[in-house]
Design a protein around this nucleic acid. Structure first.
Lengths: 197, 197
DNA sequence: AATGACATGTAAGAGGTTACATGATTGT
DNA sequence: ACAATCATGTAACCTCTTACATGTCATT
């Protein structure tokens, strides 16, 4: 019932009034490690929330570009948000295609696998850097403004996950390079029945 | 083009012939930390792959239950799989609803947030245990059969991610409990404009 | 006596992505 | 000169989840 997208939007608007464009940008920079949302969800959902009376909009007339529509959360919206916040969270899920390709690595050469892992590592480094930069700015402001307490908590896990990815990449590449019988893996694995599911 | 589901299925069948039911079970136990697939995808996709000549099936007649349909990958299927394996992996994505709720934690009490984090921790402990158990069995067989080399590599990242989650949960709860001005967070955060996106 | 494993499948709907359309302003 | 940012939105499509249907056998 009700996609999570609407609660992400309500949550963002509970912090301050914003446009749909702002919501997308903030979710990307502040929650990029653990959530994503895109315009195709945001704009229709904002209209739905408006119809339900959970947000209101103020239109700022722009010249030569689409009018800014600044949305604010209503009391009704805040109540819906709180109801959702009290429910148990859905189990976390991940999609790591790199691991899928590694798991089927017997069909690839050493170099091909290592290439995948290096690309994975690069993405994790880049995300870790982004997170660290924003974290630094937030920490600087934390003394003056406590509202960064919770975002900082989430950054701390995001960063750890990226670090784990980077460290894994290094050790995985080492193990693959050390591995002697690499090319014979597929042959050895053939036609043998295992008890492990 | 072509959902990832079909390549997961081809990848599983490249290891050994299996039923749709087996595929689901194996993806859950061996790839549960980084991928998921369910029957609603598997059965229709198997038929599609059969039509395309990428898998073949052998029907084992069963009494009093649906006939087992054991699928095998064909050379054509193996080629398609290899083509996909050579393509760069999609960027990884995660959905961690717990962090969403923590990020909006200003609307919750200390205890409510800690409850969410403890449930998150419990899920991670349970998944870490599952992964560790299977890893143990695989390691025992690795000396005899090298086919577990790649699955073991993926378990190593899966386990690290769960460990990172567990450690984060502990430190996050500590920080929240130490936090003095907790209930005033929302008031302080109100109506202030920030430069951080 | 009840649960879980085995084993298949469908239909409907919800959720999410992508490509398209428009176009000035600001920064490098 | 070029890219990115600002700012909206839609339509088509793809993907994915959920609920339903069926029924035995083995284990606790």
């Amino acid at each position: 019932m009700g996609s999570t997208a609407q609660f992400v939007i309500l949550g963002m608007l509970s912090k301050e009034p914003m446009t749909g464009y702002d919501i997308r940008k903030r979710v990307k920079t502040r929650m990029g490690s653990f959530w994503d949302i895109n315009y195709g969800q945001i704009y229709p959902t904002l209209r739905t929330l408006e119809k339900k009376g959970e947000v209101t909009k103020k239109v700022e007339i722009m010249e030569n570009r689409p009018n800014r529509k600044v949305y604010s959360i209503t009391n009704k919206g805040l109540n819906e948000l709180k109801k959702w916040l009290l429910k148990p969270a859905e189990p976390e899920s991940a999609k790591i295609e790199t691991l899928l390709k590694v798991a089927f690595g017997e069909h690839l050469s050493k170099d091909e696998i290592i290439k995948h892992i290096n690309e994975f590592k690069a993405r994790n480094i880049s995300r870790l850097e982004d997170a660290s930069n924003i974290e630094k700015e937030m920490k600087a402001q934390l003394k003056k403004n406590e509202k960064y307490f919770f975002p900082l908590l989430t950054f701390s896990l995001g960063k750890s996950l990226h670090k784990a990815g980077i460290e894994w990449a290094d050790t995985a590449i080492e193990l693959i390079e050390k591995h002697k019988n690499f090319t014979k893996l597929y042959e050895n694995g053939k036609n043998k029945i295992s008890k492990i599911n």
